[in-house]
Every structure is written in C-alpha cells, then in structure tokens.
C-alpha cells in the first residue's frame, strides 16, 4: 500500500512540475502580450468562390473549357512554367484524337540525342513525351526571372488551399495597392520587380500580370477571351493536370457508396434479428 501511494505521490509531483513549467510560459506570454504591441499580418484576400463544372459529387470535365485552358497555357504560361507531370498522350483525355495529339506533340521541340553524334540536341515531340520545360535547368530559370524560379504547374491547384479558385482569382486579381492599405501597411508596397496581388499571401508577386487584355489568346471555339474567361479556363485546365482522375474518382465513388449503403442496411437488419432473441422485452 505504501508502495502504491508512493507511485501516486511521484505522479502528483511530476504532474505539478509539468504544470508549473507550462504555466510559467503562459505567464511570460501573457506579460509580453500585455506590454508589446502584436505585429499585424498583411491582410490578403481568400480566393473568390467561383463555380466549376467539376465541382460537387457529380462534377464532370467541361472538355471545351479544358481545351481553351490548354491554349492559354500553351500561348502564355508555358513561356515560363513547366508542366512536367503531364504527357502529350494525356491530352486524349480532354477530347483530342490520337492524330491531333501526334500533330500537337510533333509541333513541340523536346530535348533529345543526335543519333549520329550522340551530342545533346532537340527533336520533335512524340505523344509519349512530357511537356518540355521552358528552361534547361533551375539556374537558367532563376537567371531569366529576377531570381524567382517559376514553379511547375502540374500540381499547382492541389498545392494551394482551394487551388482552382486561388489560381483563377490570382490571375484576374492584379491591381494597384489601395491607398488605405499602403497607409496601414507601408511594407506592403511592391518592391522593384514585384507586382501587387491581394490573393497572394504576402501581396507581392514576382510574376508580372500574365493575362492583361481581351483577345490575348484566340479561342478556336469562338468564346470571347476576356481576362476573366482565360483565367477560369486555365485554372480549370490546371485542375485537370493536377488530378486527371478526378472525375473518374467521383464516378467510381457512387456505386461503391450505394453498394455499401445496401450492405450496411442488410447488416443492420441481420444484427437486429440476431439480437432480438436476447434483447429484453419492452
């Protein structure tokens, strides 16, 4: 008994030790909070809530939109951003025929090896090739972009919170910082080579506004290429590149859940029947 008592006595002392140590930190923190002024964060905006064809449990790709988005990537983004996890063959999934993919790939230049000399060279792309990077390496990418390496876009919409809305909001969000913001947070003023964007967490982005005027890209389907339209189309396209299996995933989910619901109801009924023998009568 005395032995057990001593186990608990030690526990109580250890417990009090941890409590004192942590509450000491609390008191110091409370004192600091009371005496020092907290540094405020620069306020940034959460992405706009836009609606997408692939939203919700029944979402589907809008292939025309994905094709328009590919065109925006091709003509604008691809100047600086790679798309290294996407192969040309994947484009068949967004409505292009095999022949079209072949032609599309052949129009691209990818790194290769000269078959006669073994020297590094280039060759026309094949459907099995991946989208080529605009820069030979990160050093070249940094040198060409004021030391900010343009990130790969394959997974961009999954690599940001609320990614699709974020990419679209960011692309159409470039604006001059407001006078009130600069008054309250002078540090938010864009430095040299930086651009103000309220959706970017520190408000200053090294990427110059990429989509600036209506008609910058000529859509094949006749859709008017406003900045908003292009931003949304490329955000949708990048949602597809980030997760080409998104729609298949949702479509697979339904039969699985319906089967499980059926099985669970049956399991409940058998449980009820089995237990009825020993349940007390009400």
């Amino acid at each position: 008994m005395t032995k057990l008592l001593s186990v608990r006595l030690v526990a109580i002392l250890v417990g009090l030790g941890f409590t004192v140590a942590v509450l000491w930190g609390f008191l110091v923190g409370a004192y600091n909070a009371a005496t020092e002024e907290a540094a405020g964060h620069v306020p940034y905006e959460h992405p706009k809530e836009l609606s997408w064809s692939f939203d919700g449990p029944f979402g589907k790709w809008d292939k025309a939109q994905l094709q328009r988005g590919l065109k925006v990537y091709d003509e604008v983004c691809s100047a600086c951003h790679s798309l290294k996890f996407v192969a040309f063959r994947d484009l068949e999934q967004i409505g292009y025929s095999e022949a079209m993919v072949k032609a599309y790939a052949a129009a691209k230049t990818v790194p290769g090896i000269d078959p006669n000399t073994g020297e590094a060279s280039t060759r026309p792309g094949l459907p099995t090739d991946y989208f080529p990077s605009p820069y030979p390496n990160n050093v070249a990418a940094a040198a060409a972009n004021n030391n900010a390496i343009p990130p790969d876009l394959s997974l961009m919409t999954k690599a940001r919170g609320d990614g699709t809305n974020y990419v679209a909001s960011l692309l159409m969000g470039y604006q001059e910082p407001s006078a009130e913001l600069l008054e309250e947070h002078p540090e938010a003023a864009p430095g040299p080579g930086l651009y103000h964007n309220p959706y970017f967490p520190n408000l200053n982005l090294a990427m110059a506004p990429p989509l600036t005027s209506t008609g910058q890209v000529t859509y094949d389907d006749g859709t008017e290429a406003t900045v908003e339209q292009m931003s949304k189309d490329v955000a949708a396209f990048l949602t597809w590149t980030a997760e080409p299996t998104l729609v298949k995933r949702k479509q697979t989910g339904w039969p699985v859940l319906i089967f499980l619901l059926f099985a669970t109801v049956l399991a409940y009924m058998s449980k009820k029947q089995i237990w009825s023998a020993v349940k007390p009568k009400k």
């Binding site: 526990a11 250890v14 417990g15 941890f18 409590t19 942590v22 509450l23 923190g29 409370a30």
Partner: peptide, 18 residues
C-alpha cells in the same frame, strides 16, 4: 493559440497525474 495550448497542456498533465 500558444496561451490556449498552455492552459490545455497544464490541464492534461493535471488530469492524469494529479
């Protein structure tokens, strides 16, 4: 969050050990 976690941590140890 830091101060809240400090109170909760103190309670956690108090609960089990005291």
């Amino acid at each position: 969050y830091v101060m809240l976690s400090q109170i909760a941590t103190a309670y956690y140890f108090l609960h089990f050990l005291v």
